[in-house]
């Protein structure tokens, strides 16, 4: 199967004053449709950097990233934004909802950027909010929602444009265990029912249990894997 995202010998270096920090050291990774992958690593292991590059939010210092076979370094910023908006959904640790918009509008926003018609947009956003169990809270502002509810809005938002890939960066990091469990159940459910590829980044082994495929990362390198299938490949 053709990979959704493919990383070829990806390096990422940060310049911190005079010190050079190498966050990623020659990562090779392919993610094929339908996978539910967990990227595990301690704080500072480079997992967030890897996630940003997989999500096309950041570009590698060296190496290539292919989004559905397309070299992202050749795309203009606007084009990349549009493809990213259509292909990848994001769930962040801090939820990152727009505080001025209510739940429904937050879920509609990615569709507005893709110029989806209003009728379709509203229908889709409502459907998503209902499926994450927030059918009665669609007009609430983020400030009026609990942390768990906010993250559920964020999940609904990440699925708005029916992306092939949803990336969740420590989605339960700011939540209590009950809310966290609920979030992981929703993600698993969406993975099964909607057939989406999901990548979760975490340092929490309990979260990693939800996934069959785990990539361990340490010091900017992939060190170990627990793949039961060949959906995720890495080099050498």
């Amino acid at each position: 199967m053709k990979p959704i995202i493919k990383l070829e010998n990806v390096w990422k270096t940060y310049q911190l004053g005079k010190v050079e920090l190498v966050a990623l050291k020659g990562i090779n990774l392919e993610i094929t449709p339908g996978a539910f992958v967990t990227i595990m690593g301690a704080s500072g292991s480079g997992k967030s950097t890897l996630l940003n590059i997989i999500g096309c939010l950041d570009i590698p210092t060296k190496g290539k990233v292919f989004l559905r076979g397309q070299d992202v370094s050749l795309l203009s910023e606007d084009k990349l934004s549009q493809i990213r908006g259509k292909t990848i959904g994001f769930v962040f640790q801090e939820f990152n909802l727009l505080p001025n918009l209510n739940a429904l509008e937050n879920v509609e926003l990615p569709m507005i950027f893709q110029e989806v018609s209003q009728t379709f947009r509203e229908k889709k956003a409502k459907e998503l909010l209902i499926s994450v169990g927030l059918g009665k809270r669609i007009f609430h502002q983020p400030a009026e929602l609990s942390a768990g509810e906010r993250q559920r809005v964020a999940i609904a938002r990440s699925f708005a444009n029916d992306p092939e890939l949803v990336i969740a960066d420590e989605p339960t990091g700011n939540l209590d265990s009950v809310s966290g469990k609920k979030i992981m159940e929703i993600l698993t459910d969406f993975h099964k029912k909607r057939g989406k590829t999901i990548i979760v980044v975490t340092h929490d082994p309990n979260i990693a249990k939800y996934s069959k495929e785990i990539v361990n990362i340490k010091d900017g390198q992939i060190i170990h894997n627990h793949f039961q299938t060949e959906k995720v490949l890495w080099g050498k």
């Binding site: 999500g55 606007d78 934004s81 994001f90 962040f92 727009l98 926003l109 990615p110 950027f113």
Partner: peptide, 16 residues
């Protein structure tokens, strides 16, 4: 800044 980052992440173009 953060909001702008979010909007870009979920598909807002620079022109938007």
């Amino acid at each position: 800044t953060r909001e702008i980052g979010i909007m870009k992440a979920i598909g807002a173009k620079n022109s938007t």
